[in-house]
Design a binder for these strands. Structure first.
Lengths: 177, 177
DNA sequence: ATACGTGCAAAGTATTTGCCGTTAT
DNA sequence: ATAACGGCAAATACTTTGCACGTAT
């Protein structure tokens, strides 16, 4: 239903493709988390970790594969699938479903925020707000549950009038491309 | 990840299989909506509409197919897929994703409610609350959007202590078998 | 050394679709 | 009459996996 705009090569600053282990991709925050979780750091994994660390949007596997391949062409989709799965299990990544059939990923450390999907453009806008968690925790409690995680997504139309240019009160926002 | 418990035959009160057009499946609320939307009422469609009207849980296509087949065996999965898709486009059904790979459906008129998924049992508990909409509408507005729809799902563990037996304040709840 | 990682192609799932005979309106 | 519909099997789309080889620790 809602499909996000594809933003190929957005994060790919590297011009030529470099061999794995190259300085550009060393020691990304996510690579560090991999090591901490006892994962072996192969060339492919380092590149994927780097791509994930650089991403500030919500790429799907195909997109991650594209970005990773641009850095080191000897990476297969299968490896990307295996890696995101692994990182999700380790709690390093979070899988999202914004509709459109494919899973999309973002780093777990990307802070507590929610997503607002512009139904017209498919764009994903992130925002922060503490109220929802509070409210939902309370609701879960009333139902006799201990909230372990939750999902909140808003779908809306951009209001043409009052287009907000400056940061909104209580909300830091950041949109995909 | 979270997979709902399969509840086959739960809604299947009919003992033997009846031919399409049988009285049991005539004039279900959803069948009526189909007519209002200018859809042709074939035997299969009537049965599927009936099954959907009776369901008070969130069946996936396979489950719908099972229930519908029990009433009239000459229905194929393809038809179920085509029907739910059509009904979703008409706004009669809503598609849900509770994890586990398959889409699940519920009638749009089933009232405003949310879902809490018991991560241990996979059970889905419905609850009502006005707060979330208010809060989210407000948030969307701050971001310069007009909220057209939203998604809220809670995932939690049942609190063993204080197991609530009676209806909870401000919440009508109803769980998938 | 050896358990873990990877590429490749084949296998799975869930869902859609082409073809063509059937049916509601 | 005729546009929709439905069955079937083949086709898609996304994701997982078996196998044989490579590599980080």
């Amino acid at each position: 239903m809602v499909v996000d705009t594809k933003v190929a090569d957005r994060r790919t600053r590297t011009q030529g493709r470099k061999p794995a282990g190259s300085a550009v991709v060393d020691d990304s925050p996510i690579a560090r988390l991999c090591v901490e979780n006892g994962l072996k750091m192969t060339g492919q994994r380092r590149v994927i970790a780097h791509v994930l660390s650089e991403a500030d949007d919500h790429p799907d596997v195909e997109e991650l594969y594209r970005r990773a391949s641009a850095i080191d062409s000897r990476i297969s989709v299968a490896t990307v699938y295996r890696t995101v799965r692994l990182l999700e299990e380790k709690g390093i990544l979070e899988r999202r479903d914004f509709g459109g059939g494919r899973a999309r990923y973002e780093a777990s450390d990307s802070g507590h925020h929610y997503h607002l999907i512009d139904v017209d453009s498919g764009r994903v806008i992130e925002f922060e707000d503490d109220e929802p968690v509070r409210l939902l925790t309370q609701i879960a409690q009333r139902l006799g549950f201990d909230l372990v995680s939750h999902r909140i997504e808003l779908f809306g139309h951009r209001l043409e009038k009052e287009t907000p240019k400056r940061p909104l009160p209580k909300s830091r926002n950041k949109s995909d491309t």
